[in-house]
Design a protein around this nucleic acid. Structure first.
Lengths: 126, 126
DNA sequence: ATAACCTTTGAACAACTGTTCATGGGTTAT
DNA sequence: ATAACCCATGAACAGTTGTTCAAAGGTTAT
């Protein structure tokens, strides 16, 4: 990374014309989609569900028992996680098995974890 | 990564004893902190502000003009971004210059962007 | 067939969030 | 000193979110 370039939201790996470096602020549309995605990760029970699925495939009832929620509440949350393609599922008889869709959620967890675990430096202000 | 190990929320880079592999679901406390952090990223105007700061240091008034918000609203949001240590600031006379604190936010943006841009595969259900 | 099981869905309601508005603190001018 | 400027803060209000509750769909038993 060059030294004087400001931090930017570029996506440098892609050379296509539709992936031009961002020299403007995010469009309302892109910002909205970002917010919707991260908003889904803004609930503690959804993280508990995701972390349970990180251990392996689980049925809805099992998830409810592990995280201590009603099956209805878990089902509602799983629907939200599905719309953001964070989980996938397969039906087997009357059971539905959910699992994490890919590694993105794990990378996000790790990145956030590192940020939260950083030692707090001395603040000038406040 | 071994083939049969389930995806897990381990943090493999650290070998310390206080960073044991996660074989249980996230604690309520950890899940809460994760949710609080990602919840901050769950607002489109905060992403617009962050993307403006990704281009370089900006004053509060400049941010308000660029993102099309009132200065008060921007100030409220900057406070939230400060509490999550996503931005830092320096005072210069009566102006306050904000900037991104580190690269974590950029990594999170990129990871999410890749996830959102993934082609949708054929769903079995629904 | 009926019953039990697992899951999903919709409505309703309490709790939370982000904005506006008014106000005030602190700094730089005149 | 007063005025203008830049920013932060608190209250209040509309909009959103996550839960509970009741009901129903679909599958596997008996």
């Amino acid at each position: 990374m060059t030294s004087d370039a400001p931090l930017s939201l570029d996506e440098p790996n892609l050379s296509g014309a539709d992936r031009a470096p961002v020299r403007e602020i995010l469009s309302l549309d892109k910002a909205q989609r970002m917010a919707e995605f991260f908003g889904v990760l803004g609930d503690p029970n959804r993280w508990r569900i995701l972390s349970a699925l990180a251990l392996g495939e689980r049925r809805v009832g099992e998830l409810a028992a592990v995280v201590g929620m009603s099956e209805s509440a878990v089902s509602h949350q799983l629907r939200i996680l599905r719309t953001m393609r964070l989980v996938s599922y397969r039906k087997r008889g009357r059971n539905v098995f959910y699992c994490l869709k890919d590694r993105h959620i794990l990378n996000l967890y790790q990145e956030a974890s590192e940020h939260l675990d950083e030692p707090l430096e001395e603040e000038e202000g406040e």
